[in-house]
Design a protein around this nucleic acid. Structure first.
Ligand SMILES: [Mn+2]
Ligand SMILES: [Mn+2]
Ligand SMILES: [Mn+2]
Ligand SMILES: [Mn+2]
Lengths: 221, 221
DNA sequence: ATAATTGTTTAGATGAACCTAAATTAGTAA
DNA sequence: TTACTAATTTAGGTTCATCTAAACAATTAT
């Protein structure tokens, strides 16, 4: 009595409920969902009833919703697909972080167990997507990875750029110029007291990045 | 008054009408469409009215449909996407020709001008998909490429394997074993009168393939 | 405690995409 | 020609996902 096919719409609802649940740590409100789905509260009520019927959410009138274990798993699978496609688009296709998300929003609904797992393998089991958000594993579990900004790293620590916080074209273009991208390996050489800029060793060369830049680059774990 | 968004369903109908139009060279019948879409004739009538409204098909009651120029273009763009994704899946992901088609059936509906064109570029502007069917260009025109089977090639002719006719796992596994795949470059060395087997030069090495194999491998143009 | 406000649900509709059953049309056979 | 048959369309329903307007519940202010 498992493996029900979900519609694209249902998947989007579950994903959004998951996100809101994480943010506010608790029941998710009808209006909040309506906002993120670009629909009206009435439509959300409707959908919540349907999702409840399918035992994907716990829904009590006037009290908001939470995901059931099954619903959470479904949500995480969608998120997994979304993020793996994002890595693919950005890493392998040179997509911008902007355009990226929109297409991933569509690709996340492609159903094929095989394809996602294969994608993950080809991409080298990335722990996070290009925005630095962790990628759930094939069992539908969210790993507990945390972003660590270069700004906060110790001297002599090594790492690999896993994402950026600021995704403006201006910033991304600058990164490109100084030869920093996702996957770039580095070592923290020193921090300049005067202006909080950070000295990095990037493949043997000394690169200095400002405090602002160091606040927007992160690695994982 | 152009660029209308088509639903996934509408796209599938257009694609199927295109195929039937090519096969039977002329008006396409309601029942034929119903068969290929796994729906009933009544549903097809419904849809034809809608597509007609949008000027994507020429529809006269009881007389079948044809695509309008706009409809044909839309159909070809879907086919273009389908086939490029197929090349991607088979060439770059090692997908089987079977599984391939099912997923391409979904991926063909991802909308992004950018992504398709980029995909095409990364794949090296393949003229045909792994089944040997030609890939429409970015303008929505179907090129007039033709498959030429190794069986029918002249001695000394060179080429590149562009696809296979038999897509059974047995055959594909065998090809793999003898080191032949899509993209493999070859030269026809000789044809053995006795059993019609063909001698190939593949990167300097002599490879002999049977008549059966030569009937199932083709190159283009 | 009562009233006002805000959030949420129900009622009643709509459009897309489908269905079954009944009517209609076109083409063929008598 | 007229009747029969096969293909097609219309009529009337269903489900999903949406909407607006009206009703109702919960919370907050007086
Ligand atoms: Mn995203
Ligand atoms: Mn989505
Ligand atoms: Mn195909
Ligand atoms: Mn399709």
């Amino acid at each position: 009595m498992n493996e029900q096919e979900l519609s694209l719409t249902e998947e989007n609802y579950l994903k959004i409920i998951y996100k809101l649940e994480m943010e506010h740590k608790g029941e998710v409100t009808t209006n909040a969902i309506a906002d993120l789905t670009n629909t009206k509260a009435a439509s959300v009520s409707d959908m919540l009833k349907r999702l409840s019927q399918k035992v994907l959410v716990n829904y009590i009138k006037y009290q908001g919703v939470t995901l059931t274990p099954e619903g959470r798993k479904k949500a995480l699978m969608v998120i997994r697909k979304h993020r793996l496609w994002e890595v693919f688009l950005v890493d392998q296709r040179g997509y911008s972080l902007e355009a990226d998300h929109e297409i991933a929003e569509q690709l996340e609904h492609i159903e094929s167990l095989q394809l996602v797992d294969q994608l993950e393998k080809v991409l080298g089991y990335p722990p996070v997507d290009p925005h630095g958000d962790p990628i759930p594993n094939a069992k539908g579990e969210m790993p507990n990875k945390k972003q660590i900004f270069l700004k906060d790293m110790q001297i002599n620590q090594k790492g690999q750029i896993m994402g950026v916080k600021d995704t403006s074209p201006l910033f991304l273009k600058y990164l490109d110029k100084i030869g920093i991208g996702i996957g770039t390996e580095f070592e923290i050489i020193d921090r300049v007291e005067y202006d909080q800029s950070v000295e990095l060793n990037i493949s043997g060369r000394l690169t200095i990045i400002s405090k602002e830049v160091a606040q927007n680059l992160f690695t994982i774990e």
